[in-house]
Amino acid sequence: MKSLGYVEKAPGELLIERFYTAFQQGDYQTMQSMYHDRATFSDPVFGTLHAPEVRAMWEMLIKSGKDLRISFHHVEADRLQGACSWEAWYRFSRTNRQVHNVIRASFAFDDGKIFRHADNFSFWKWSRQALGITGLLLGGTAGLQRKVSDSAHHNLTKFMTSMQAK
């Protein structure tokens, strides 16, 4: 039989595409449902988070990101692992500065869900956009990264507490 050029996508590829499509649409509930109950997430700003924090982080970022726009591409995955590139454009709320972040994400899957998600990007490039001269001068230091990470964790904890009160 002659092939019509259709290639069935791997489960991991479909999972990544569904995740970032939900992200583009601001659908944090779908994103949250895609994480395994023992999932972890890591990036240069938040460090390592566990499933409840990961789910809350996406909700917080979507709810606070009024002008957030994302794109994704180069999705590669199989049943167990995957990766993609994605980009985010938004205004950093603390400084009102415009940010364009270029990220490489890697994933591990278990039971058809995201088990491990790691976003990698240049903290220095991000900080010089988000923080201006402070990021330009200090973005390569562990001290600034720790301060930004502490602030991100504080904001996430505050958000999670406010959501529990509702």
Results as ranks from 00 to 15, higher is better:
Arg116His: 11
Leu156Ile: 11
Trp58Leu: 04
Arg104Ala: 06
Val102Ser: 12
Ala165Asn: 12
Asp37Leu: 09
Met160Gly: 06
Asp43His: 07
Ser162Tyr: 03
Pro44His: 06
Gly12Trp: 06
Ser64His: 10
Met34Glu: 13
Gly12Val: 04
Val102Lys: 14
Leu136Gln: 11
Ser33Gly: 15
Phe46Met: 15
Gln32Phe: 05
Asn120Met: 10
Tyr35Glu: 00
Cys84Arg: 01
Val102Ala: 15
Arg18Ala: 14
Thr48His: 06
Gly5Glu: 10
Asp37Arg: 11
Arg116Asp: 12
Tyr28Cys: 05
Arg55Thr: 01
Lys9Thr: 09
Leu144Tyr: 06
Glu8Val: 14
Lys125Arg: 05
Thr95Asn: 02
Ala56Ile: 01
Ser149Tyr: 07
Met34Ile: 01
His153Gly: 00
Leu68Asp: 00
Asp43Pro: 05
Asp43Arg: 05
Arg18Asp: 09
Trp124Lys: 05
Gln24Phe: 05
Ser64Asp: 14
Gln29Asp: 10
Gly139Asn: 06
Met1Gly: 13
Gly143Asn: 02
Trp58Val: 02
Phe92Ile: 04
Arg55Glu: 08
Glu53Thr: 06
Ser149Gly: 15
Ala83Ser: 15
Ala152Trp: 07
Arg116Glu: 13
Phe41Cys: 07
Val7Trp: 02
Ile62Met: 11
Gly140Met: 02
Gln32Gly: 03
Gln32Met: 12
Ala88Val: 03
Thr134Phe: 13
Arg116Ser: 12
Gln145Arg: 15
Phe159Ala: 12
Gln98Pro: 04
Glu59Ala: 07
Gln164Trp: 02
Ala108Thr: 01
Ser149Lys: 07
Phe46Trp: 03
Ala108Tyr: 02
Arg79Trp: 00
Lys2Arg: 10
Ala152Asn: 08
His73Val: 08
Thr30Phe: 03
Trp58Lys: 01
Ala152Ile: 03
Asn101Leu: 15
Phe92Trp: 15
Glu53Trp: 09
Thr161Asp: 11
Ile70Trp: 01
Asp27Arg: 11
His36Asn: 13
Ala152Val: 03
